[in-house]
Amino acid sequence: MRNFIRFILRHHFVLLFLLIELFSFALVVNYNDYQRSSWFSSSNRFAGFILNKSNNASQYFMLREINEELARENAYLRGQMDESFRISKDYFSVVFDSLSQQQYVYRAAKVINNSVNRHFNYITLDKGTDNGIEPGMGVISARGVVGIVTNVSKRYSTVISLLNTRLKISSKLKETNFFGSLEWDGQTYEYANLSGIPRHATVSVGDLVVTSGYSAIFPEGILIGTVETVEKGKGESFYDIRVKLSVDFKRLAFVEVIGNNMKEEQVELENITKND
């Protein structure tokens, strides 16, 4: 026993080093477990508070861009108002379903922390459970899909960004309705890869890529980006498609969080089928 203690004392530096490294690696590897306890993420109250304060200051330097963005969104929304459609009998509102019950609820939120240069990028928003935000909700900006809420505290929430190699988004080509999954490759923040589009589909540069609406997170047809290049992978029956993302993640300021009132119903039903 005395020898053992002497051994520990003599090598305490190396042993302590190994111990801390083991602990750190456990944190890295179990990251997904730790996400659930929001203490370790920037949605915890203390970090959220400080990030919010700093964002309030830096926002002044971006007022021009923010105004432009809001003006663009105004114009877009005005384009969707009843007055901007010719009244015809076969016109249905996208947001309301056939029972004329609202399916998707939009909540505006402000981005208070954001990164584009890591492998796993996350975004922090200034709204949390107090504002009705829950994990699993989709996040979009005026220009397109941004990410999915992973972690919520009382007043803040963290969003797994589209620029995160752990996130896949079910998407389709708007023109032809072929669907695949969109994934970021960890390289530049302007491009992502779309896989799973079969060879017999016709794909051309400039085609719009939108959400498929299969996952109950995003409504159908929300813009993700445009096709930049199309390549035939060797010996595979799928195209390799590079997509230019429509959202400029470097200038993200305001986003909308989408709540789906009928998500539970859909997920429940799908789970029954899965268990068969």
Binding site: I20, S24, F25, S41, N113, R118, F120
Partner: peptide
């Protein structure tokens, strides 16, 4: 790590 949502990564590297 706390501020950049990367539990363990910076601490492992800094301790190393």
């Amino acid at each position: 790590d706390l501020f950049s949502n990367t539990p363990g990564m910076h601490s492992a590297a800094t301790v190393f």
